[in-house]
Computed example of a mutant assay.
Amino acid sequence: MSESYGVIAAIVVLGLLGLVGAFALNKALTITYPTADKLKTYESGVDPVGEGWAQVHIRYYLFAYLYVIFAVDAVYLFPWATIFAELGVATLIEMFVFLAFVAVGLLYAYRKGILSWT
């Protein structure tokens, strides 16, 4: 039993050594010439103007959360559907329970008016 832990420990150590080696090699081979223009804040091709603070409406975050919910739903639903015939009726019931939870969340968002953009 302890031999299998030794193999796992060796793999972890080799992986960490490879990671540290890759970072060290990157640092050793990189040539940088920092200038004032290179150190200036830059995003999406737009020069920064004014302060960096801007107020964002909460509606955008709610839509982001809804997207995450449905993306996670897709991550579980599509692989399940590809092997549905092999899994049986019990997993069908479990998937309908999962989809019911997602539907209740969508219904709640609709009733609260979150899905209306205006």
Rank of each mutant, 00 (worst) to 15 (best):
G18M: 06
I8H: 09
M95I: 03
F101M: 12
A71E: 08
F84N: 05
L107W: 15
F84R: 11
G113K: 05
K27R: 12
E51D: 09
L99D: 02
P34S: 01
G50T: 02
A103S: 13
P79K: 06
N26D: 09
L39I: 07
P79F: 03
L17M: 14
Y42F: 15
P79N: 09
F96V: 15
V102E: 04
K112H: 07
A10R: 12
Y65R: 11
L39E: 14
E86M: 11
A10M: 10
K27E: 12
I83P: 13
Y5K: 12
D73L: 09
Y33P: 15
F23C: 11
K40S: 11
E3W: 08
I8D: 14
L25D: 02
V68P: 05
L106G: 06
P48R: 14
V46M: 02
I31S: 07
F78N: 05
I8C: 13
T82K: 15
A85Q: 15
L17N: 08
M1A: 04
A22K: 07
E51P: 05
G21D: 06
P34K: 07
S44N: 12
A28Y: 03
T82E: 15
V13I: 14
A71M: 09
Y110P: 06
A9W: 04
I31G: 02
L19Q: 10
S2Q: 07
T32I: 01
H57T: 01
P48N: 11
L14M: 10
I93P: 05
A100S: 13
A81C: 00
L77E: 12
L62T: 11
L115A: 08
Y60D: 01
P48A: 13
K38D: 05
E43R: 08
F96Y: 03
V75L: 10
Y65M: 12
H57L: 07
W80D: 03
T118V: 08
L66C: 02
S44H: 13
E3H: 10
L14A: 13
Y65D: 13
F96A: 15
R59M: 10
V46E: 00
A10L: 06
F84Y: 15
F63W: 07
A71S: 09
V56R: 14
K27I: 14
T118R: 10
A64E: 04
K40Y: 14
V46G: 00
G50V: 01
V46F: 11
K38S: 08
T35M: 07
K27A: 15
R111L: 09
V7P: 02
F96L: 15
F70A: 03
Y42N: 03
V75M: 12
I114Q: 00
I83M: 08
G45Q: 00
L87T: 12
K40P: 04
W117G: 00
L17E: 12
S4V: 14
S44G: 04
L106T: 10
V102Y: 04
I31R: 11
